[in-house]
Write a protein that binds this DNA or RNA. Sequence first.
DNA 1: TATATATATTTTATACTTGAAGCATATCGG
DNA 2: CCGATATGCTTCAAGTATAAAATATATATA
Lengths: 159, 159
Amino acid sequence: MNGEAHVSTAEAPSKARLRLWLRLLKASRAIEAELRDRMRREFNSTLPRFDVMAALERNEQGLKMSELSGVLKVSNGNVTGIVDRLAEDGLVARVAVTGDRRASRVCLTDRGRATFATQAAAHEGWVDELFAQVPAGRAGEVAALIDGLTRPANREDER
Amino acid sequence: MNGEAHVSTAEAPSKARLRLWLRLLKASRAIEAELRDRMRREFNSTLPRFDVMAALERNEQGLKMSELSGVLKVSNGNVTGIVDRLAEDGLVARVAVTGDRRASRVCLTDRGRATFATQAAAHEGWVDELFAQVPAGRAGEVAALIDGLTRPANREDER
DNA sequence: TATATATATTTTATACTTGAAGCATATCGG
DNA sequence: CCGATATGCTTCAAGTATAAAATATATATA
């Protein structure tokens, strides 16, 4: 007995899914805000810069601009600006691609690699701290569950 | 037998948590990108505009700028710009607060309420579609699980 | 009441982000 | 070889985002 009319007090399924989405969004924004803040305070840097360096670190031989935007799923123009600023700081370098004068390969410099190593270690520690509630042994299953939430939404996403 | 040296192949717990975070981030970004895209194509609008209108819809009497930025957890300056643009479009209005000439209360206009109603219905449908994989009956428990992931990270977040 | 301090908001500088337009270079079909 | 088309990247306009400074008003305190 809940005081509602008795025609149909059942909530539409879409409401429950909407709440789920709002929780997911809220959680990831809160974590991201915390990481952004720490990245700024500790390293005077940003998450987008970190993301670009992380992608480059995973590819010893560097990545072309278009590969970078593909991997990070951001627009081409976006990557141009971030790489410009990282290059100004001497953390990455654009090297010519032999055989295609349109393209350039972006690589971490030695300094970029060293900088990234420091930041990545700190970043991993922050995440570990922020997710301390999750037993390490269960992190995998939770990750799989989250992955399953959106599978059909980004089918073109698989690799 | 996994071919690794036998000194210690166990992975640090922080790696599993890092992967969990990357999945969470990837999932929410994919959903958000899809919603942003639809919001732009169907309504020539944006998620931040929608978020502001949603907050105002939930508060019949409107919200002050600072309340708005508090609820949405974005900076004051950010809200100023979004409200400016919504006001230009006649969807919200700043009304003076009697007794405090510094503050203004932002309210949805009739047109804003109508516009929001249309967009909110579509938005709920999109989310329902994107999360179709999640049985409606389980959405609640999944939401609670996600919520639990970050509780200690945003303890000041509770309401 | 005068001054200090706090609050509400806007402004500014800088960076991130997108979608679309623009350029240069490659590649393909004839 | 040459025009059409595709590809790689940058530029541009507009919007979003932050932190910090500036402005205006309120409130408290001496």
